[in-house]
Design a protein around this nucleic acid. Structure first.
Lengths: 219, 219
DNA sequence: GTCTATATTAAGATAGAC
DNA sequence: GTCTATCTTAATATAGAC
C-alpha cells in the first residue's frame, strides 16, 4: 500500500505530491475556484500531466479523501471502533480546515448519483463507519440489549455531518461541543471515555493531537 | 409577492414556469446532468431566455428552493414553530424526490463559500429554522429551564440533514423513522404531538398529506 | 420589455508527439 | 511519463430583433 517498490515508485510519489497539492489548494481556497490547472501549477506540472495520473477530477478528489482516511487509520491503529469516539476531537480539528470540510460535502453530494465515480467509495465508507461505531457503542453501554446501536450510529454520524453543514454557514457554532454533548446524552457517561473529556462538557478538552484526517463520516 | 398586476404579470408567470421546469428536471435526473439548456428546453425557451429572467444558474436554483419554502409557508400558515415538528412527515415525502434532496445538498455545500450568491439565503434560512424550532421545543417541554433549546434545535436539524445524506447513498434507510425516534428521545413524548404519531415508534404514521416543500432545514 | 442569436471565457476530457 | 493541441460543454455577456 505504501511506498511500492518497482517501476511505479516514481509514479506513486508524483501521485502523492499531487494529492498534497490538491489538499493544500482546498484548504486555502475552498472548493470553488479550485481547478485542476491550479493544482497542476502547484506541483509544477500541466493540467494534462495531472489527468494522466488520475484520469478525472473526481477521481483525484476521491483519492484526496482516501488519503486522509489512510492517515487516520495508520495513526489510530487497527483497533476497531475507538477512532470514531474521537469525533469531537476530529471536529475540533476540522474547524481549522473549512476548505476540506467543504470538499467532503461537495463530493458526497455529487456522489449520491449512482453512476458517480465516488459513489461506491462513499457507500462503503458510511457502511464501514456505521458498523464500527455501532459495535463500539454496544461495548460501551451497560446493557447492549437495551440500545439500538445501529440506529444510534446512524443518528450520531448524521448529526456530525449536519452540524458541519451549519458550521460552514455559521463558523461561530461550536461543532465539537455540540457533538460531544450529544454523545453524552445518547450513550451515557461511557461515551468518549477513551480520550476526550467527560461528555456533556462544552469546554475544549486537551485531546493531545488531533490527527490530520480522522473523522467518523464527515470531512 | 404573488401575482403582481401590471406589466410584470407575464414575466412572473414565465419565472414560475421556469422554476417548475427546473424542479421537474432535478426530480427526474438528479443534479448532475441538469444544465440550464435542459431546463430551457422544457419550457420551450433558449438558454439565454432563462438567463434573462434569473441572471445566473445559482440564482435560479436558489429561487427553486425559495419557491418550495414559500409553498410550505403557505400550507402551514403563519403559526410559528409547528411546521418544524412535521419534519418526519417531510422526510417521508422527501424520500420520494431524491433529486430535490440532492439539489439542496449540492447548493448548501456550494453556498458555504462566503461570496456565493446563495450564501445569505441559506444562512438566514438556518437561523430562522433554528430559532423557530428552539422556540417550539421550549413550549413543548415541561420545564423550559431544564433544556438547552438552542442546542437541541441545532442538533435536531443537523441530524435531519445528515440522515438525508446517508439516505442518498443508501435508500434503504428509513429517514423519517430515525428522526421521529430522535425527537421522542430528545424532547420526550410531547414531541410531534401535533400531527405525527407518538414518538419512538418507527412505524409509518398516517400524516395525511405531506406538503410539497416543507422541511426544517433540509431539502 | 422580452426574447433570439452569437461570442467569449473557462474547465474538463482526449489524442497523439516526444 | 509528460507535454502540446484540440474538442466539448457550460456559463456569462452583448447586440439587436420584435
Amino acid at each position: 500500500m505504501s511506498k511500492p517498490r518497482g517501476p511505479y515508485a516514481k509514479t506513486s510519489a508524483k501521485r502523492q505530491q499531487i494529492i498534497d497539492a490538491a489538499l493544500a489548494a482546498y484548504a486555502e481556497a475552498g472548493s470553488r475556484n479550485v481547478s485542476l490547472r491550479d493544482i497542476a501549477q502547484r506541483v509544477g506540472m500541466t493540467y494534462a500531466g495531472v489527468m494522466h495520473h488520475f484520469g478525472s477530477k473526481e477521481a483525484l478528489l476521491t483519492a484526496v479523501l482516501e488519503a486522509r482516511d489512510a492517515v487516520a487509520e495508520e495513526r489510530f491503529g487497527p483497533e476497531p471502533g475507538t477512532t470514531e469516539l474521537l469525533s469531537s476531537a476530529v471536529l475540533r480539528h476540522n474547524a481549522s480546515t473549512p476548505g476540506l470540510v467543504k470538499l467532503f460535502v461537495d463530493l458526497v453530494a455529487a456522489a449520491a448519483e449512482p453512476d458517480h465515480p465516488a459513489h461506491d467509495f462513499f457507500e462503503q465508507r458510511y457502511e464501514r463507519f456505521r458498523g464500527r461505531l455501532a459495535e463500539r457503542i454496544e461495548r460501551s453501554v451497560a446493557d447492549p440489549a437495551e440500545v439500538d446501536a445501529a440506529w444510534l450510529a446512524r443518528i450520531f454520524i448524521a448529526a456530525a455531518d449536519g452540524i458541519q453543514l451549519q458550521w460552514l454557514l455559521d463558523p461561530d457554532i461550536d461543532m465539537a461541543a455540540d457533538i460531544e454533548r450529544l454523545g453524552g446524552l445518547l450513550v451515557g457517561p461511557h461515551w468518549a471515555a477513551g480520550s476526550v473529556g467527560s461528555a456533556g462538557s462544552a469546554g475544549e478538552g486537551p485531546t493531545p493531537d488531533a490527527p490530520e484526517g480522522a473523522r467518523p463520516a464527515s470531512s
